[in-house]
Design a protein around this nucleic acid. Structure first.
Lengths: 235, 235
DNA sequence: TGGCACCGTCAAGGACCCGTCAAGACGGCG
DNA sequence: CGCCGTCTTGACGGGTCCTTGACGGTGCCA
């Protein structure tokens, strides 16, 4: 969850902010002056900082410099001062955005989203591990027993869709639509052929699948298989 | 030098912008409509984009989407529309900042500086070594068996994109968009021709590639040599 | 017990994709 | 104006991948 530090000397505004932001799913910290703001930032490591320049104890510019001394998280300045020199000073001190009061909540939220997006690390830890194979979604690469193995585009597409929803059932319709397009919703035989190939490549015992399970009449399910043990079923 | 692409349908404003920005040491490209803007962006690779939303041929939001389809450079929107929904739509489409006209040149320059600062990569070890050749990304040089060898601009562009993502599969779409621009997504024969040339120059046995691997139907992958660290943090 | 629906398996044909080569187009430079 | 490096475009052979149909197995139900 994204954590936001909100700095303003007006308790009423802080409370309003907190309600609005928490309603959008953010985790909110607040501070009412510069010193406690820097303390809170150091302690809580917020993902985004909202800063009012008019604080009682410190110049807002110095707060920005204090934050930038150790962190690179986005800083959005909220200020009643519309004069250009104020904006320039704040931006050059290290602020990422400058919004003049009064502002609309919708706009502020959009600017926060833009700031988050920029700061977000581009690469996700998109690696799924099972006892028998490893799927790297970002690199589009699969290895088994340490050796890379090759999937065709269609096979990969299917595996990706299933692996991105671990434990969940994916209906045949959804799979066919995703891989072959909306006009192939009836061609369930495609699924049978390709699931067989995938199992042959990935399952330790393709005849008794442990990871790619069939739900008859419904679809397929990828089971990461940490908790599951597949003792030889007595047949 | 920082390159800025300035998009507006008013020639007078474009000229004023150019003078102002060039006086500050920026390199300036201009475009007067959406289509030529996307072309210019693909061809010139600006570091920052200034975009007026009111273009004659396309919706500004679609221009943002078109740029974001292949690039992550900062986009600063300049617009006469002050309404909140416009701002939100632009920011959520991928814009980094939204400035309403009229604006002060000083403020705009400060916002450009802020955008540049954010986008500046903390660039890393720009030398990739393999048992057979060495790529210096910063110096744009390639050597094999100690001797420098020459790549054409297009070849270099391709190699760079692949080498910057070691081990990762880069789709044909991504390569074509990156090297030739968004309009060439279908021309996969370009990739075949140039990958062949690159392999002829770099691979020890061009007929059986070891470093530049093909994933049929998907794309290509650069595989660093065996003893490589492989844990290089992509940034 | 027989029939039906659904699933897994297999193999063959054809469509598609890739590597290769070479000729023509384009643009910079002497 | 002519040369040269580079990019574009088309064609061809070979290989991979997708599609398609048939067959057998299994569980459910009448």
């Amino acid at each position: 969850m994204t954590r936001i530090l909100c700095i303003d000397d007006e308790p009423r505004l802080l409370r309003g902010m907190r309600v609005n932001l928490e309603a959008r799913g953010y985790e909110v910290d607040t501070a009412a002056d510069g010193v406690s703001a820097l303390d809170a930032a150091a302690a809580r490591r917020p993902d985004v900082v909202l800063l009012d320049l008019g604080l009682p104890d410190m110049d807002g510019i110095d707060v920005i410099r204090g934050l930038r001394a150790w962190g690179t998280m986005p800083i959005v300045v909220l200020s009643a001062r519309e004069l250009e020199p104020d904006k320039i000073a704040a931006l050059d001190a290290g602020a990422d955005d400058y919004v003049t009061k009064p502002f609309g909540m919708g706009e502020l939220l959009a600017r926060i989203r833009a700031a988050e997006r920029r700061a977000a690390p581009a690469d996700e830890a998109a690696v799924i591990d099972t006892p028998h194979f490893r799927v790297d979604l970002a690199a589009k690469r699969i290895s088994r027993d340490g050796a890379d193995l090759h999937l065709t585009p269609t096979e990969w597409h299917l595996v990706e869709r299933l692996v991105r929803n671990p434990g969940k059932l994916v209906t045949q319709r959804a799979l066919l639509q995703d891989v072959w397009g909306p006009r192939y919703e009836q061609e369930t035989n495609y699924l049978r052929v390709y699931m067989a190939q995938i199992r042959r490549k990935l399952e330790p015992d393709p005849a008794h699948p442990r990871y790619f399970l069939t739900e008859p009449g419904m679809g397929y399910r990828f089971e990461p298989g940490a908790g599951h043990d597949a003792a030889g079923s007595p047949r």
